[in-house]
């Protein structure tokens, strides 16, 4: 049976999860892997930079219209053949986005079971704030086999990362690694490396803050597509390779708040 990587990237809202997910997806696809990205944020923007800035219909939009959803309706091919899917969700403040994720992912699994099986790497881009059970459904329902946490070296993103580690351990999900998306804070790599070690995990990559990433995103593209020769593109390639080769999984030991404070001073 084919060994599949089905990963979820967690982290504080706005820390760069969608950007990292789409660039890693593009990097692995360029390297010849079959890759799928499933956006689980109601904002539906996980795959936008793989589709030239275009938005695609979401699974929930289709379900709301009451039509019999087919694979062609919900799976769109993006840069380097990455299969792009957006779960979608209700308008802010209405209905239940968490239930929406569950319904959308179940629909995808029932309609596109074969396509899912063919993939080497599936990335679930999950919302930053896990406010109810639906937001951890990809893990709880056993769809995901590896979880990563994205953080910068600042206190608040680390605090969120630490809480996520606590939550993952609570639901018996091991952590496969920590990714640092730099915000140019002082001693950032050192702090996140230390954090990764102390929780028993590993730092997968240090992604330096780069204007290139933001410029590409503004134009609706991934770095891999618009700046393939840049240093930052190589960082994503290395991260993609590291994820594909990673075997390490640990039940994370979350830190005390005092220890986090001390670490980020």
């Amino acid at each position: 049976m084919k060994k599949q990587k089905i990963i979820a990237i967690y982290g504080k809202g706005g820390i760069g999860k969608s950007s990292t997910a789409s660039n890693v997806a593009a990097a692995c696809a360029e390297a010849g892997k079959k890759v799928m990205i499933i956006g689980c944020d109601p904002k539906s923007d996980s795959s936008i930079t793989l589709l030239g800035g275009k938005r695609i219909p979401t699974i929930l939009d289709l379900l709301r219209e009451g039509i019999e959803v087919t694979e062609e309706d919900m799976v769109f091919e993006g840069y380097a053949g990455v299969k792009c899917i957006e779960a979608g969700g209700p308008e802010p403040g209405i209905g239940c986005a968490g239930r929406g994720i569950i319904v959308a992912v179940q629909k995808l699994k029932s309609v596109s079971a074969e396509l899912i099986k063919e993939q080497d790497l599936i990335i679930y881009d999950v919302p930053g704030d896990i406010v109810c059970g639906g937001f951890v459904a990809p893990i709880r329902k056993g769809y995901v086999n590896e979880a990563y946490v994205l953080t910068s070296g600042e206190y608040m993103p680390l605090y969120a990362a630490n809480n996520i580690c606590k939550g993952l351990t609570k639901i018996n999900m091991p952590l496969s690694g920590v990714i640092c998306n730099s915000r140019n804070a002082s001693r950032e790599e050192e702090i996140v490396t230390k954090f990764s070690e102390e929780i028993g995990s590993q730092l997968m990559a240090f992604i330096p803050k780069s204007q290139i990433v933001q410029d590409c995103e503004r134009n609706g593209y991934s770095v891999m597509e618009k700046a393939p020769d840049s240093d930052i593109a190589d960082v994503y390639r290395r991260l993609g390779k590291a994820i594909m080769e990673n075997e390490k999984k640990v039940m994370a030991d979350s830190l005390t708040d005092e220890r986090l404070r001390e670490m980020t001073k």
Binding site: L63, R99, V103
Partner: peptide, 8 residues
């Protein structure tokens, strides 16, 4: 139904 739960 499911749509009602998700979208209100």
């Amino acid at each position: 139904d499911e749509n009602g739960f998700v979208f209100g």
